[in-house]
Design a protein around this nucleic acid. Structure first.
Ligand SMILES: [Mn+2]
Ligand SMILES: [Mn+2]
Ligand SMILES: [Mn+2]
Ligand SMILES: [Mn+2]
Lengths: 217, 217
DNA sequence: TATCAAATTTAGATTAGCCTAAAAAATATT
DNA sequence: AATATTTTTTAGGCTAATCTAAATTTGATA
């Protein structure tokens, strides 16, 4: 049985090892968790004692298969709760993360599985991230960044890379959301900004915005 | 902002002061919480520093009005979650307490209020206990114990005093639940056992059972 | 390759929440 | 009223999770 804190560490390590390959560095977890590197080192040792991570001094950590399972169980709960908050409790997609950060630690398999059934087995959360099923398996469609979508090729927004409130509310104002059809009309060579058609409206977005939007071509 | 532990203490003190009047003793909280009296003393001091209880050495504690409010906020969440688990997630009334014990600590006013709306403003939880509304006000109907119901007077089961799984499952087997109409056919002078009509069936129950069932006459 | 800067770990401390054992106060019993 | 019992508090300790400051190691740079 994990504590709330160890669960957050495992999840952070899991996410970090998704983006960067190889081992995960102390500092990167310190930044994610909001703790000092020395605290992270302490926790790495504890997780290593519990055989949830492989840890070698000065060499970072990687999750063991048991560690991955534990992390995925948290991710599963996090994303199911986020889905519930949006679909039934009138939360906007930029408000759910903080609450799900707490709900993900509730320990009851029955609760998780019944919630999944109640939501009718959703495969993706409100941000387009895949939800691990009961067997902790998740399949995400192959998606590209909007920066990589060729000119005049139809695509659909299926996710976001940046989950910050600021970015999500910005997309709300631009009327871009999961499911919005996107077409790149023009790519400006000078600054890589894009003229796109999003749904019905035509608008300009910066490169920074484009590289935080996932597209299914 | 309270910790999980202080919230559980405040709730325990609140419940204890409902039954017994006056101040609440160290030992009674120790038993409810499952901690040693010395730990309870420590916590009483902390709560007193935060002005959530009035505490005098050797004299027990009583909640301040701020303490009552905090306790009621937890009770509100606890009972709303219990209601949700039973009404939408296929939990039986004997399974909800443990999970609600965790869910009651989730901090999000919006979550609580939206949950209440989603459940359509329930007034009572699955055990018949009243749910404080947003203003922390709750009204319970006047109810009596089944032991006090006069012979041949129609009553309805509106709650239980003992919330243990054992008792609740026993009632399930006897087909007694919230809303079941009850009629006392005979009271045995020897041991105060009752012959009752519960719904369609006639059955015998002990005094101990009867004094854990609330009836609206 | 020697040196320096950055990353990481160690050492030592703090806080919350718990414990046991012993002391003190309150209450019950002779 | 004196004594015995029960309740409560104090004293001192432990663990998890954090911190700061001081080593130590790594790896980049000259
Ligand atoms: Mn979390
Ligand atoms: Mn998400
Ligand atoms: Mn609780
Ligand atoms: Mn209840």
């Amino acid at each position: 049985m994990q504590t709330l804190s160890t669960e957050d560490y495992l999840k952070a390590i899991y996410h970090a090892s998704q983006s960067a390959s190889g081992t995960v560095a102390t500092t990167s977890i310190a930044n994610k968790i909001g703790a000092k590197p020395s605290s992270v080192t302490d926790m790495f040792k504890k997780l290593s004692d519990q055989k949830l991570v492989k840890y070698e001094k000065y060499q970072g950590v990687s999750l063991t298969s048991e560690g991955v399972k534990t992390a995925l169980r948290i991710v599963r709960k996090h994303r199911l709760w986020e889905s519930f908050l949006v679909s039934h409790l009138n939360f906007n997609w930029d408000e759910v993360h903080q609450v799900a950060e707490q709900l993900e630690h509730i320990q009851s398999e029955k609760l998780t599985n019944e919630l999944e059934r109640f939501l009718d087995y959703p495969t993706h959360d409100p941000h387009g991230d895949p939800i691990p099923n009961r067997a902790l398996f998740m399949k995400s469609y192959n998606k590209i960044l909007l920066t990589e979508l060729p000119l005049n090729k139809e695509g659909v927004c299926v996710g976001v890379k940046d989950n910050s409130s600021d970015f999500l509310r910005y997309l709300d104002r631009r009327q871009i959301g999961i499911g919005t059809p996107i077409l790149v009309l023009h790519r400006e060579d000078f600054d890589q900004s894009l003229h796109i058609q999003a749904g019905n409206s035509t608008l300009m977005i910066t490169q920074k915005t484009a590289e935080n939007i996932y597209i299914k071509p």
